Simulated scan of single mutants.
Amino acid sequence: MERNNFLKAKNTYLKEALIQQNMRELLFNFLEKKHYKNVLDIGTNQGEFAKLIKEKITFNSFDCLDINHNEEFFLNSEFNFICSDFLAYESCKKYDLIISNACLQWLDFKKAIIKIKKLANDDSVILLSTFCTGNLYQIKDFFNISLDYLSVEKIQNIIKKYFPNSYCFCKDYKLSFKSAIDCFRHLKNTGVTGFARVNLNKQILKDYELKHKNTLSYKCVFIIINPSLNQYS
């Protein structure tokens, strides 16, 4: 899969990214309505999660970081856009709220968690989501195209090492389409696969419909770190 496809799909992403929308809404439900001094959104894209979060909290500063040049989406806003690779990002301040939705699968996950640990306070609230092994398994099976996803167990082990009191859980989503071409159009418009190098034809569309019934399966992992909560629900 090629990350620059994600940039190419920025004009269609918000409309097509139904699963990512559901993911951020789920994370949003774990957020306490209160004041946070410094907030960081990792992989902010067009700020869709940041804008949702802003409606629930107050803050002193809200940094939105993305490797792509998405400054246009943050003009005349309360957000501070930072164009940077997260693993190379350095900050003199600590964040008491760190969020990231459907982004960490693009990074070395362990290095990303170590970086988050470095940027967080001991009592920081951290809300993360990513994808794991089994995500879009139909595409892996049919085209042998896939990111190198970690297993749920591997993700949980890494998180628990650096954040022992974290809560991790997995959730499956399934999308069904009227036709195979609608299925592949969805993938192209969300920019999450390397479909630029796939030449579709009638036979491929027919074979996919027969084998996978025009469906796509998403397998997501959610990570909740909130020291003020004794239990999660």
Rank of each mutant, 00 (worst) to 15 (best):
L119A: 10
C103H: 03
S84I: 11
W106L: 06
E55N: 14
I98W: 06
Y36K: 08
E48C: 09
L75K: 15
V39R: 02
D122F: 05
I67M: 12
A120R: 09
I82D: 07
N68D: 13
L27E: 06
L26S: 02
N80T: 14
E48W: 12
N60M: 02
L26K: 15
N101C: 07
L104M: 11
N121M: 12
I113V: 14
S100Y: 07
N121K: 14
S91W: 09
Q46G: 00
T12D: 07
K37D: 04
K94Y: 04
W106D: 00
L75V: 09
I67V: 15
F86L: 07
E72Q: 14
A102S: 15
N38V: 11
A50T: 06
L75I: 12
N121T: 14
E71H: 14
A88W: 00
C83L: 09
G47K: 05
H69V: 05
Q46K: 14
A112K: 06
Y13C: 09
E32Q: 15
I42P: 03
S91E: 10
E16A: 13
A17L: 07
I116N: 12
S91R: 12
E55P: 04
D63H: 11
K110E: 15
N70M: 11
D96T: 12
E78C: 07
Q21H: 13
L107A: 06
F109E: 06
I98H: 04
L75C: 01
H35V: 12
K111F: 08
N60I: 03
D85R: 11
F59H: 11
N38S: 11
F49K: 12
A17R: 03
F30R: 09
F109D: 03
D63I: 15
C64A: 07
C92W: 00
L65W: 04
N121D: 12
C92Q: 13
L104T: 09
R24C: 10
T44A: 10
N121V: 01
A102C: 10
L18G: 01
I113R: 08
L107N: 10
L27C: 05
G43F: 03
C92A: 13
A17Y: 10
I19G: 09
A17W: 04
E78Q: 12
I114N: 05
C92S: 13
K54R: 10
V39W: 00
Q21Y: 12
K51P: 07
C64G: 00
K115T: 11
S61Q: 15
I114A: 02
K33H: 11
I113G: 02
L40N: 04
H69F: 10
F86S: 08
N22L: 11
E90T: 13
K94E: 07
L14W: 01
E16G: 02
I116A: 11
L107Y: 04
C64Q: 05
Q21R: 15
F109I: 09
A88N: 15
F49S: 09
N45D: 14
A17P: 01
I114P: 03
I82R: 10
A112H: 00
L27S: 06
Y95K: 08
V39F: 04
Y13L: 04
A112I: 05
M23T: 14
S100I: 04
E72L: 10
R24P: 00
K118Q: 15
N76H: 11
S91M: 12
I19Q: 08
H69Q: 13
F81G: 00
S77Y: 01
L52Q: 14
W106P: 02
A102H: 05
T12I: 11
C64S: 06
C64D: 02
S100C: 09
